[in-house]
């Protein structure tokens, strides 16, 4: 089990009230893989420094996870397949 930090940029056309439930739904793979979601922080709408897929804004979220490497890889794969997700990044802050 390792600590991970994942940043997700969601499509800005998503409605504000469905952001939280849909993120929770995406993160279901973590507990089912034996891990735990330690923190789910939604930054909200933020201007992008440059356009991604013709969008100038994005909904940012940062998630702290404790999970197996395979679980995180699977989560990242699923998010990248999702149309509502513009970009993701996984870092291991404790590795430094």
């Amino acid at each position: 089990m390792r600590n991970y930090e994942m940043m997700i940029i969601l499509d800005p056309t998503l409605e504000e009230r469905i952001v939280q439930p849909s993120l929770e739904q995406y993160l279901q793979v973590v507990p089912s893989g034996g891990g735990a979601v330690e923190k789910l922080e939604i930054w909200g709408r933020r201007r992008l420094a440059y356009e991604i897929d013709k969008r100038s804004e994005g909904i940012y979220a940062v998630v702290d996870l404790l999970a197996e490497p395979d679980t995180v890889r699977e989560l990242d794969r699923q998010l990248n397949l999702n149309e509502a997700v513009l970009r993701t990044k996984v870092v291991r802050p404790q590795a430094h």
Partner: peptide, 20 residues
Amino acid sequence: RDVATAIKNAREMALLPYTS
């Protein structure tokens, strides 16, 4: 080196610009 990688990570997530 740490600052440079952090900036590059931030650029990937559109937090900082590649060019302005």
